[in-house]
Design a protein around this nucleic acid. Sequence first.
DNA 1: CTGAAAGCGCTTACAG
DNA 2: CTGAAAGCGCTTACAG
Lengths: 334, 334
Amino acid sequence: MSATIKDVAQRAEVSVATVSRVLNNLPGYSEDTKQKVMQAIKELGYQPNAIARGLINKRTQTIGVLFPNVSSSFSSEILHGVEEEAHKHNYSVIVCNTAEDGKRTMKYLQVLREKQVDGIIFSSGVLKEDYYKAMQTMGTPVVLVATKSDYDQVPYVKVDDYQASYDAADYLIRQGHRRVAMIGGSWLDPIAGRPRIEGFRQALKDHGVETRDDLILDGGFSFEGGVAATERLLASVSDVTAVFAAGDEMAIGAISAASRLGISVPEQLSVIGFDNLKLAEMSNPPLTTVSQPLQEMGRLASRKLIAMMESGAPADSEIVPHELIKRRTVCPPS
Amino acid sequence: MSATIKDVAQRAEVSVATVSRVLNNLPGYSEDTKQKVMQAIKELGYQPNAIARGLINKRTQTIGVLFPNVSSSFSSEILHGVEEEAHKHNYSVIVCNTAEDGKRTMKYLQVLREKQVDGIIFSSGVLKEDYYKAMQTMGTPVVLVATKSDYDQVPYVKVDDYQASYDAADYLIRQGHRRVAMIGGSWLDPIAGRPRIEGFRQALKDHGVETRDDLILDGGFSFEGGVAATERLLASVSDVTAVFAAGDEMAIGAISAASRLGISVPEQLSVIGFDNLKLAEMSNPPLTTVSQPLQEMGRLASRKLIAMMESGAPADSEIVPHELIKRRTVCPPS
DNA sequence: CTGAAAGCGCTTACAG
DNA sequence: CTGAAAGCGCTTACAG
């Protein structure tokens, strides 16, 4: 097997304590012995065993990240940011795909505990009480990303969903649209569902535009859902000139559905999305959307978590700015 | 802090050895003491420390996965499969974003070694000699996914790139196209570059279709590259009726470029992609493409790696089947 | 400046 | 069936 600290101590003719000291840049040895030790390390190709180190330090230099779906563009952008920042600070990241249901989350929380991770980033929708309790008993710092919770001990980093949604609707109305629909999430979803619907409604209200319940559909945040909702919408309401989809995939679905129905975007129907995933710019035509800085949010969450882990102090939540990205799917109604 | 095995031993009035036995389902205790131990575990909310366990077992139940870009659809699909299978077998996965250059890879290999991972999945393009050597000295099992190497000790799971490419071109020609272009990778890329170009060429040849070097462009596997290559192509050659893009993002780029030039897909230009990423079905029109079962490849790689780790035996490489997915971007030339 | 020793939380022969 | 002890590869007082 690989060389251990004992082997280098032997070879350098010093004690393991001394080797440990030079390894950790602690004071307490002559330049001479340092050289001997370095030499031995090099000759043996010695690498410290982080496991042994972790056992004694009670720090593993690893964090766990929970996602409902690792392969979604949304999650993987966040993951990218998380990983990047973690790596910069010498932390590794364990990815956990919680799937939709909760069981998997609890299971994962347990393995993260057994593996003694130093911190957790949670992006899996709602932070249920069970999860929160488990995290409490673990005593591990947690930060939420793209979500928030009722527990204000746990900091989050997210966009202002209400305002972002308001801005999207506001933009549509300022372009002249008066009959605008929304394809969103569930009213029961306290993060990406309700707040966005409320922001949408408020914008219409502030502009004196009629808001109708049949103009707000649930697209379940999927492409297929966006397609289906758009078909339903276009079948029942004839004078819609614009739709706000509270997720880019749903927006792309809306464009597909429209195009299949021979309705041209944006000439006959304006579409605005939400997220600004990579696919938004690849869309045909390129999708106008409200951007969430996903990668940056991941980075921020990582940084915040690391600060908590290293200082032991609680951290503040952070609302990151969203931005309207104007591309080619919105124009004034004809 | 959390309870340790000592705490439960005390509470159950047995030795830690006994607790360890029931924890690991080893034989050697009465039903009675088992109950006492279980009870104590429950009361204390005890969870074993995987770090301590790993130190002694020399197994951490974690694997490392290296990707050049975690947030690409391509990588995240693979990651999803890897994670799923790993989790099923009680392994955790550490993600490593190697970025384009090699330095990051070596750095990561080092941390994976220090963290004593049980195995490595490598998806970062070419397995350079440095990487291979480092892996050798680690003595850790490795499997390659969506790539291969000259070292035949290290198994891979991938598609037959040559044949997949051949099939794409063959399909185009059978549809009646006689002037077909390819937007691929670099000839110097031994995995996704050259073999696909060769497969393409051979298909044309076998059908007696003229192959011209100016009809084979490098799109660098990006959307932008696909756009640019298509613009170059369409500016210089007027009679192309079909293009094979060796990556879906490039294919989508081709569609965008064509649409911007007022060329309709597929009526005036057929486009076929490669990969079958999620965005292929979201494309407008939906993209015809050659599918690589990315998630399944991830799962297979994971399974193969776990088999190697647990048996100590080498594993065989595996070529997984590709499939032509016919959607709406290819039709006979008019 | 340096080393012997205890200890992190476990597992595993060994002995009874 | 059960426990005392050694040991995994480190770090960290403590003593000199």
